[in-house]
Design a binder for these strands. Structure first.
Lengths: 339, 339
DNA sequence: AGGCGTTGCGCAAACGTTTGTTCAATCCCG
DNA sequence: CGGGATTGAACAAACGTTTGCGCAACGCCT
């Protein structure tokens, strides 16, 4: 039988309310009683019933995370940072996957909300504009809606916050680096169409080209989906060009690794004949062949910051949208231009 | 303001209990009322308060998952399968990480239990024998303890179930395959010491050697941690041997990819001079250079089966321990023995 | 010694559901 | 038309907490 606060009360010969207060270190309980009750609770292995507690306080002490796919290393890292931060704050983390489908994403969000999460985080949303009018429970006293923080794909809105990385700056930095290595024909393998981070990285790529006195050429931009499977097709398309690129910036590391594999298979030497730069710095990128030069995403920080924003919103504090910077990780997949 | 069952009752002019039953399709409510109430609830955007419901039913409709590290692709895939199965059954999935530390693992398990999960899954536990006397809440009516299912590292115990893959068989198959390719000096890069799956794969490796008429040599077994970082050291150790191996089986793909990277760096051709076989078949293994030959883990099935076992235990059904088979995925990192 | 502030604790309501029991109305059958 | 079975819905208790309020006892000050 699980033991409750009234069991303790009965044994200690006090009222349940006294036990409750003693366990919360309420000042109006005498130190001796408090100690006695805490000792008793401990020895009986008392565990507060969170549902009962939640029912009255209106808090579940759980945060929700909607992700596209935990199998995506980037997502996993963000989630890892979020979990750590949540646990440190005494919060649990409930998650659900959308499989990159907007409809499933919204459904997942509702599921989590239905489980009474105190705050919701959405990583790489595919439908960010839909959250403004998602039905959310209001806080018992302040009547404020459950806060939602969009990671890496924010939009403005009531009780809607955002944490993201500076994709534009990252992509510009990558292009600038390639330019310094002497490259002038720099391609871009784009990610999921319509995605904000793809748009931003593409913008950064374009800005980088003009900032470095390089004209942009639409034929150097090839569409992909941000998956290793993009590699073969992107490589084939680019090498078929009349004036093929000497360097390529990829939407993410997954695509870059796919490109590396395709290059190895067709005997294209990297970085000798073709320089490749990824984006995200997933763990395995350091173990690609050759090790991948990439733009690091502040993944764990994104997750951590997201829960901090959630918590701050819950505490009633002001929450500012956050933009975190990435940085270039130089490894071996990009080298001097041979031409 | 969030609307509750009594709001609906007031508007519909009936009692709260009637509303509750109508929403559950209770037979003793007239069809017209039922329809009317359901329509009303729908139009008001009613969302049941799970905590209130849970308080009386003793169910939270959440399952917990303790994992070592979601950043590990294997773990992520298992979790993906679990999440899908849980969601299909109307369950949420709460997770916590242990960072491969037994103490953190137990703490994480307690945290999840404190959040009132109905069942707990532990993926690749580092302390499986500790769960038998973990304090768990008893079911309200049957008084049965919260079921715990250990994935990939099961031990027997009351309300303790296990789902795992046949590591022994998988490793044997890998060795047999290498033998068919002509290899006689086959090394093994071991994983985390003390881990059950490591022990089993090691056993399978040894059994494979004797089954194929190969003597085992302790110098061919090198310790690792199941991480890419293992690669360089393992390679150096093995190549320093008087009679170095022509093939190596790794505890997992992460280590194998690390090994591949180390080989590429030192100019060792794979599979020309050294054949490498991994274990797990993580997504990126197909994009390694060269693509990795590996033993596939039935990851998603492991996760799915784990939640099914949980659910079956909750329903009071008999739960058998499950062993799933892996299979060999032939790619390009292993080839005929040159010597 | 009377009054007042403080300290320590109990009472009871409240949170939003579910569910066993009771009760009234209707129906059917003889 | 009377009585038992059946149907439909209300009542109220229960789940395990938290918390505002009340109240008694005590100490202090004047």
């Amino acid at each position: 039988m699980t033991i409750s606060i009234v069991d303790i009360a009965r044994i200690a010969g006090v009222s349940p309310s006294t036990v409750s207060r003693a366990l919360q270190d309420h000042p109006r309980i005498s130190p001796e009683r408090r100690a006695e009750i805490q000792r008793l609770a401990e020895s009986l292995g008392y565990r507060p019933n969170q549902m009962a507690r939640g029912l009255v306080t209106g808090r579940s002490y759980m945060l929700g995370a909607v992700v596209t796919d935990i199998t995506d290393p980037f997502v996993a890292e963000v989630l890892k940072g979020a979990e750590a931060a949540a646990r440190e704050a005494g919060y649990g983390l409930l998650f659900a996957m959308s499989n990159r489908d907007p409809a499933q994403e919204l459904a997942a969000a509702e599921t989590l909300l239905d489980h009474d999460v105190d705050g919701l985080m959405v990583i790489s949303s595919r439908a960010p504009h839909r959250y403004a009018d998602l039905p959310r429970r209001g806080d018992r006293e302040t009547n404020a809606q459950t806060p939602v923080v969009l990671v890496n794909n924010g939009v403005a809105g009531p009780r809607l916050f955002s944490v993201r990385m500076d994709n534009v700056g990252g992509a510009r930095e990558a292009v600038a680096y390639l330019r310094r290595l002497g490259h002038r024909r720099i391609a871009f393998v784009a990610g999921p169409e319509g995605g904000r981070s793809n748009r931003e990285r593409l913008d950064g790529y374009r800005q980088g080209l003009v900032a470095n006195g390089l004209g942009s050429a639409t034929e150097l931009i090839v569409q992909g989906a941000g998956l290793p499977e993009d590699g073969p097709r992107a490589l084939a398309t680019l090498l078929a060009l009349a004036d093929p690129p000497t360097a390529v910036l990829c939407y993410n590391d997954l695509a870059a690794i796919g490109l590396l594999a395709a290059a190895a298979r067709t005997g294209r030497r990297v970085p000798g004949e073709l320089s490749v730069v990824g984006f995200d710095n997933i763990p395995l990128s350091a173990y690609a062949t050759p090790p991948l030069t990439t733009i690091e995403q502040p993944t764990a920080a994104l997750g951590r910051t997201a829960v901090e924003s959630c918590l701050r919103a819950l505490a009633g504090g002001a929450v500012a949208d956050v933009v975190l910077q990435g940085r270039l990780i130089v490894r071996e997949s990009a080298g001097p231009c041979a031409r």
